[in-house]
Design a protein around this nucleic acid. Structure first.
Lengths: 139, 139
DNA sequence: TTTTCACTCATACTTTTGGGTGATTTTATC
DNA sequence: GATAAAATCACCCAAAAGTATGAGTGAAAA
C-alpha cells in the first residue's frame, strides 16, 4: 500500500509538472523576497536613554559631605547647643553620656532635649531624630 | 519605427509566454516574500544606551528605592517580626504605639525590642536605630 | 540701662524604656 | 509526630527619659 501510494504521488507530480514547477518557483522567490527584506533593511536605530544611577557602596554615603539645612535650622529656632545635643542623641548616646561629653549636668541635657522636642514637635527622641534627618539637620 | 519596435516587443512576449509567466510569478512571490518579512518580523531595534548620571537632591533620596541588606539580616539572625518592630521604632513610635499598630500587647513589643537590642548589640533604641541604618537594615 | 535669650542647673514627679525570667501558642521543618 | 524557632504574653523591678517649674549667669541687642 505504501508503494502504491508513492506511485500515485509520483503520477500526480508527473501529471502536474507545470504546476509543480511554478509552485517551486513561487516558493523559491518567496524565500528570496524574505531573505532580501531581512538582509537589506536598515535596522531602526532607537536611542534609549538609560538612567544609570552611579554605583553607591554603603560606605560611600559617608564620603558625601553633609551640609546642614541652615534654613530649616533658622525657621525652627534651634540653638547651636540644641543642635549639638540633637546630633549626639542621634548617635545613640544616653542623656547621661551626652552630659558627660559636653561637661554639663544631666538636668541641663534634659532641658535641652525638652526644648528640641518642643521645637521639632516631637514626643520622643526617636521621633526627633527622624524629623531632624528628614529636615537634613543631621546626617 | 516606434510602432515597429512595439510590434517586435509584442512578438518577443508572445514567443516567450512561458518564461514571461514564470518571471511574473517570480516577481509576485518575491514581493510577497518581502511583504511577509516586513510585516511579520519584529522591527529591528538597535538600542543605543546613553548613560545619564542622575543628580541627587535631598528629596530624591527617598525616591531611590531601598533594599534591605539581606546578608547582614541573616548574619544577625533578625527575624521578620523583629525587623518590623525595628523599622517602626525608627519612625519614632513608642512601644505602646507599635503594639497598637501590630495588634499585639506592649509586653510582646518589649520582648521584640529586647531581642533586637541583644542582636544588634545596642543598649538603647536610638543606638539600635543608628546601627541598623549603618547596616542598611532600615532606610 | 534694660531686656532678651541662650545656657546652665535644680527639684519633684510621671511615663517610658529596658532587663530578667518564665510560660504558652504558632509555625515551620525534618 | 517530634523538634526547633518564632511569636505571643505576663510580672516585677530598675534605669532612663520626659514634664513642669523655677532660677541664676553672661552676652548681645534694643
Amino acid at each position: 500500500m505504501f508503494i502504491l501510494k508513492w506511485l500515485e504521488l509520483r503520477l500526480i507530480i508527473f501529471n502536474h509538472a507545470f504546476e509543480m514547477y511554478v509552485g517551486a518557483i513561487a516558493l523559491i522567490f518567496t524565500a528570496l523576497g524574505i531573505w532580501l527584506a531581512l538582509k537589506l533593511t536598515k535596522p531602526k536605530v532607537q536611542i534609549q536613554v538609560v538612567e544609570q544611577i552611579v554605583e553607591r557602596v554603603y560606605q560611600e554615603e559617608n564620603a558625601e559631605e553633609f551640609r546642614v539645612n541652615e534654613q530649616a535650622l533658622q525657621e525652627l529656632g534651634l540653638s547651636k547647643r540644641e543642635l549639638e545635643v540633637l546630633q549626639l542623641m542621634a548617635t545613640g548616646l544616653s542623656n547621661q553620656e551626652i552630659a558627660a561629653k559636653l561637661f554639663v549636668s544631666l538636668n541641663t541635657i534634659k532641658t535641652h532635649t525638652s526644648k528640641v522636642f518642643e521645637k521639632l514637635d516631637a514626643k520622643r527622641r526617636t521621633q526627633a531624630i527622624e524629623k531632624a534627618k528628614r529636615l537634613h539637620l543631621i546626617p
